[in-house]
């Protein structure tokens, strides 16, 4: 085994561990479900379009059905009215699934410390990646996504 876990058996055939292979496959074929509510949606649009380009990370195609998606990106403020809907969408997704809290409103509630806003979606769904910012710049989103990819790679076959 070479140091990055790959062994070339013969030209065109690589051998590696199952965990590494599955992690590699999962991290480069993310199907995001962009649960977009508010202003962070603007930066999500900017990140997925041509200039900052989410496509080169393999996360190009948003899947608008939770049954078909594996990355739930919660983009924008979650109010108490929409919180049960978010929980239901999370429950409908099949494992392995990851949740990204995009924007500080989803991380901690942002500066909306009032009667209407959920103070952090980690009180409702388990979160894998927090991207703070109001809204986060696309560079921050891409960095966060790369950190998530490293996490997915390290999780291996059994997922969470």
């Amino acid at each position: 085994m070479t140091e990055n876990g790959l062994l070339e058996l013969m030209p065109g055939v690589l051998a590696t561990r199952v965990d590494d292979a599955v992690g590699w496959a999962r991290k480069y074929s993310l199907f995001p479900y962009p649960f977009v509510t508010a202003c962070c949606g603007m930066e999500y649009m900017s990140t997925s379009c041509s200039h900052y380009d989410l496509d080169r990370f393999g996360a190009a195609f948003p899947r608008f059905s939770p049954r078909q998606a594996d990355l739930l990106m919660v983009v924008g403020t979650i109010s108490h009215k929409i919180a049960p809907v978010l929980r239901r969408i999370y429950d409908q997704m099949a494992s392995p699934k990851w949740v990204v809290a995009f924007g500080v409103c989803t991380c901690t509630g942002g500066f909306y410390d009032n009667y209407a806003t959920v103070q952090g979606i980690d009180t409702i769904v388990p979160v894998d990646l927090y991207i703070p910012g109001c809204p986060p710049r696309p560079e921050a989103v891409l960095q966060g996504l790369m950190m998530l990819q490293a996490k997915i790679q390290s999780q291996g076959l059994e997922g969470r």
Partner: peptide
């Protein structure tokens, strides 16, 4: 007379547990 931070959540806790008081943020 309605205080701004009186919360009536449909799901989830009424207050986010604060780490300095030993609260655990994971659900």
């Amino acid at each position: 007379d309605y205080p701004i931070d009186r919360r009536q959540p449909l799901i989830g806790p009424k207050e986010a547990p604060r780490p300095e008081e030993g609260g655990d943020l994971r659900p």
